[in-house]
Design a binder for these strands. Sequence first.
RNA 1: UGCGGGGUGGAGCAGUUGGUAGCUCGUUGGGCUCAUAACCCAAAGGUCAUCGGUUCGAGUCCGGUCCCCGCUACCA
Length: 693
Amino acid sequence: MNPKRHLITAALPYANGPVHIGHLAGCYLPADIYVRYLRAKGEDVLFICGSDEHGVPITIKAKKEGITPQQVVDKYHKMMGDAFDEFGVSFDIYSRTSKPVHHKTASDFFRNLYDKGVFTEEVTEQYYDEKAKTFLADRYITGTCPKCGNENAYGDQCEKCGSTLSPTELINPRSTLSGEKPVLRSTKNWFLPLDKMQPGIEAYIESHKDWKTNVYGQCKSWLTQGLQPRAMTRDLDWGVKVPVDGAEGKVLYVWFDAPIGYISATKDYFEQKDDHTSSLAKATADKSAQWELWWKNKDTRLIHFIGKDNIVFHCIIFPAMLMAHGDFIVADNVPANEFLNLEGDKISTSRNWAVWLHEYLVTFKDKQDVLRYVLCSNAPEAKDNDFTWKDFQAKNNNELVAILGNFVNRTLVLTHKYYEGKVPQADEYTKGDILLLEEIGKFPARIAASLDAFRFREALAELMNLARAGNKYLAENEPWKLAATDEKRVRTVMNISLQITANLALLMEPFLPFTAKKLSDMLNLGGFKWTHAGRSDLLHAGHKINPPALLFDKIEDPAIEEQILKLHQSKIMNEIQNQVMSPAKDETSFEEFSKMDIRVGTILEAERVPKTDKLLKLKIDTGLDQRTVVSGIAGFYKPEDIIGQRVSILVNLAPRKIKGIESQGMILMAENANGELAFVLPSKEISNGGMIK
RNA sequence: UGCGGGGUGGAGCAGUUGGUAGCUCGUUGGGCUCAUAACCCAAAGGUCAUCGGUUCGAGUCCGGUCCCCGCUACCA
């Protein structure tokens, strides 16, 4: 394929929170580097993104904060757009799915598939919250797990025992929105019959064995398991209305409408662009022809940059939708990244365990490129990676400052010292010079090869190697020593060093756009692009350069300690704030309660139950007898540490076989906000068998 | 449970179609002083998670086990 144009999309970020470093590292930064590289080569590129503003979580956030969903998305749309802008993520457009153009595009798309008879209709029974007047997604129903008795199992899964559930299996279901007991109501929804479309999708995936192993592997996994029909509509009032009779109160599933957002953002771009072009262009421009060129022409290469959580939607469901429609091209590649962790823990918006882009710039003003550098050099390309502030500091001080910034600085300082800022004329090249110049000539192609293969870390490392070569060249030739003895040689060495500096300015642009601009300005390097890189005559003799300013500053310990402290504080705040109270249980009677026989006991023996994560097999002295109890506390207590531990035990619970072991009773545990368990004990010494009542 | 990805010197990572391990940072020693105590050179440091198999030869292929991450379909 020799594409005439490249349509690059970055995942539409969900508008229920600001953007953090994980988003940047996984998706937006690689996308931006790739786009800047293509543009620098002079390719025809369109870089599309926007806010994803529909779906249940936004309506819930709105309810919690007592504002409208539109107010929620307005707030985050602005925050996210500003953050991307500040970090130099160079979208051609940052649109949003609440725009009319998107509603129309998504609606038309659905209608097109509907008219073709693509969808199947199914009436199912769903839980409905009468108080909140809404149908409930599985995740928003909790109840008692039928398998392990956990009272806070979700409608889709019990996190205690890990079993997959459907909401109707839950005992005592409750709505997390109102705490009320939901009722079953039948509702009709439209399904995309992915099962029937599997052969087409399979052929598509099979024709892309060149995709990253994590992406290809995940797709294969889904196909092997067999695709199932998936509902493309939801009972909800926030989103794109389903454009079909009898679909009142229903909207398109966000995963149906979000990827269409790429298409509507493209339309949006051309509509906005027309406003700024001349009236002649306006008169002649055929808007639909413009956007269709990017979405319906086989000469367009479509690339989706996403995080690994989105693989199935971009590699299977969206292509299936596009194929069903028939007019559109499908993605040529989906270079999904894995996840970035923060200081050893998963990044989490709700737990405020994140480095937020808008906050970063407050502390590290004008250091966008430092974060871009660190996130790119440590990007989770093949596996999850960890971001630590110490590593951030080390990469800034030891690599950006010491290698790149320092090489540029010493070259420019010497140039001003010896030649008053004018590029000296090179004299005769030595053998070593010629070898080095040949080497420099190879860098653009080498970096390009890495970028073409979506190996951004490797590409960035190559860029740094050029700066290393520069430092080495200076150290080996020591112009500061020769200055007194060999004026010709010094001119040559300095000329070559300056050519390296100019090459760095061109080659760093995709990765470090702010620094590239600074350096280009210092060198008065006008008019050159990526395609000129590798040359050794970018700066002519006599060319005047400006006085040097440092490209990067050292980051001292206090700044880093402040960040680490901030994270630890948010961890503590979380524990306090996130303590979600389970709703009070239904009233019970004294008679009911009196049936429980709870006693004080002591653990005599403890061992792990093989092949389980959480279970311990305990032998308990209850005062009445010694009995075996299986308890799910292995995540919090080691067997050897709890021998002799006093406990409270429910002794008349019906025995139950767990992993083949008969458990005769239940240990009472108290749980904190993090789900950690602790033994419940009498506050003074009570002997085994003592009643708890 | 099933599936996908990963487990390589102190840390972070490369290792193409199998030929006994490379890079960056850190550490140690030396050189240099133009430069933000930065730069350059050298050295130390690995039974490539583990067990078994195929092979003349395996980090690389096959099988078992353990650990981490993700997905498991109505969480965006």
